[in-house]
Design a protein around this nucleic acid. Structure first.
Lengths: 338, 338
DNA sequence: ATGAAAGCGCTAACAG
DNA sequence: CTGTTAGCGCTTTCAT
């Protein structure tokens, strides 16, 4: 393995000069620079980023703490899309990504901060974290710059990117209201998810603004899981047959609701309107295709990476970025005829 | 940031002793070990893996060169599943993963080997590479241990994991033959993909064993893309209406074929049987649901990581792992009535 | 059982 | 424009 020392010897100069030449400093004569460059190529030199990182105290690497990189979460491509977005931006700005082992089956024995510090990542992006994660507070207190996805913390060195979940939910519910629905239930995710809370807010507000009083019993939690969504929907519809529309906090659960409705013999959208959230790939393929709130997950990742790197390079202050959403009307919603 | 030096000072011992204590060497008195351990915790010490990597010349990190981590490839979750599998195994064996920027839009100016060497990864996993990739040869010649997914190179330090593509294809085609089809076309991916070649072999062999002569004109390439699959299928069916079944080298293309058939007014499976390959998520949701060859992509990633790490730790020789496939019969295939 | 010293490959004052 | 020197944090002989 060639080092700058080897190059220095071969070129008859000092390692300092080699280092400077290779890093494009101006104070090297054109002649020696050329010689060094050629030698580097000839000797097949690659810089040792560990050594460089050690002395410079930064690694041009950002750490990824994603909780959804596992067998189960392949169904919505959310984690994947976030990852793609991050990867794309990091690529462009010439950062590498390291994936941390956080979702290991074995006990998580290291904290986020430890993970980041050990690897000397310059910053971190955290996604899919629950609001009661014991290590979350740590992140804020630590001095490692980081950006959170869909989790609202800001501080001197933590930024935050999300979508306008409240407004998104409102769009969904308003759509139902405009179709003449008044008895609108909600299948939410779980209370530990920030997005759930916001989507609930949007639901509540939309109803309120339309002068519809909302019923606590009509709001259930489906843990963002398809099966749970189905079960909850069945329970809900059996107990309160007057419900004519359901707003689901995720498409995956909405898919479950569709199944549940089918089992109960309620036709969607004739007997029941369903609107989901996320616009995952399957939403367009379900039967019927799902009306949903579309968010650009790829952008979410991209913007997170961009913000973090800009923070690292001092060109941007940590702040919050909120992306928009869009109502996509497909065939799971229809006019209320009751 | 605490270093072993700080601990040494606080404990009144040398850095050597601290290093030994922290790494569980036996030649440290129980008393000092305890003192050091406590101090480490107290001072919130994290080892600097860069420094350690520098001296030990290994980093407990494996490099990932995946070509499909981008916006476009969210539709089949193949890349994601591979990634999940790798991540799971790496987690278990306590390795971290670094994602390299290979699919950047800007010119790829670094070779695989350079990427790996710069980052000092212990080994690499390569997925989604084309057979004509200019940098592929490099990998084999370099001394970096690596394992390739779905690409058949083996050498002193490169292993290889794949599924039995030939047999898988045979299963698909045999299924069609058993249903009474004789005029079976194939929509393949592209000639630069190893799996395409193998799946074609399986197709050919199955026909041959059934005493059916195969027609070159009935084999087309859809580049593994949905739209191209559709177009190719339309062209094929218009020109050769006698075709009663199509074997597609991927589900995504099969989805396209389904659309194409619909446009031509050919009902699937009554007028045309279609079998796909991969068993992606959408396969179960298409209309009609797709009969396909299922492969365990997660396992593919898992096994790749396992093999690589075992190679790195000297417990396994580089070799090839071939995983099985399974025919999943859904509703896109039926008896031939022509 | 412990320490002194060297060195991994690189960058960064500082001096000339 | 170039070299000398020091040092990033850690592990590892080699002594003691």
């Amino acid at each position: 393995m060639t080092t700058i020392k080897d190059i220095a010897k071969a070129a008859g100069v000092s390692v300092t000069t080699v280092s400077r030449a290779l890093n494009g400093y101006s104070d090297v004569s054109e002649k020696t620079r050329l010689k060094i460059m050629n030698l580097a190529k000839e000797l097949n030199y690659s810089p040792n980023t560990l050594a460089r990182g050690l002395v410079m105290n930064k690694s041009k690497t950002i750490g990824l703490l994603v909780s959804g990189l596992n067998r189960e979460s392949a169904k919505d491509q959310i984690t994947f899309s976030v990852l793609s977005g991050i990867n794309e931006c990091a690529s462009e700005l010439d950062y590498d990504l390291v994936l941390f082992n956080t979702n290991s089956t074995k006990q998580r024995e290291k904290t986020y901060t430890q993970l980041c510090r050990e690897r000397r990542v310059d910053g971190a992006i955290i996604q899919g974290i629950k609001t009661d994660d014991p290590y979350l507070q740590e992140v804020v207190n630590s001095d490692i710059p980081c950006v959170l996805i869909d989790y609202p913390i800001q501080s001197e060195n933590v930024g935050h990117v999300t979508t306008d979940n409240k407004l998104g939910a409102k769009k969904a519910v308003n759509h139902l209201i405009e179709l003449g629905h008044r008895n609108i239930a909600m299948v939410n995710g779980h209370s530990k998810a920030f997005v759930s809370n916001m989507r609930f807010e949007g639901y509540r507000e939309a109803l309120q603004e339309a002068g519809i009083s909302y019923k606590k019993e009509w709001i259930v939690n489906g843990r963002f899981e398809e099966e749970a969504g189905k079960l909850q929907a069945i329970k809900l519809l059996e107990k309160y047959p007057e419900i004519t529309a359901i707003f689901s906090a995720s498409d995956l659960m909405a898919l479950g609701i569709l199944e549940g409705a089918k089992e109960l013999g309620r036709k969607v959208p004739e007997d029941l309107s369903v609107v989901g959230y996320d616009d995952i790939l399957l939403a367009g393929y379900s039967n019927p295709p799902l009306t949903t709130i579309s968010q650009n997950i790829f952008q979410l990742g991209y913007q997170a990476a961009n913000l973090l790197i800009k923070m690292l390079e001092g060109t941007l202050e940590p702040h919050v970025i909120t992306l928009g959403t869009k109502l996509v009307v497909r065939e799971s919603t229809a006019k209320n005829h009751k």
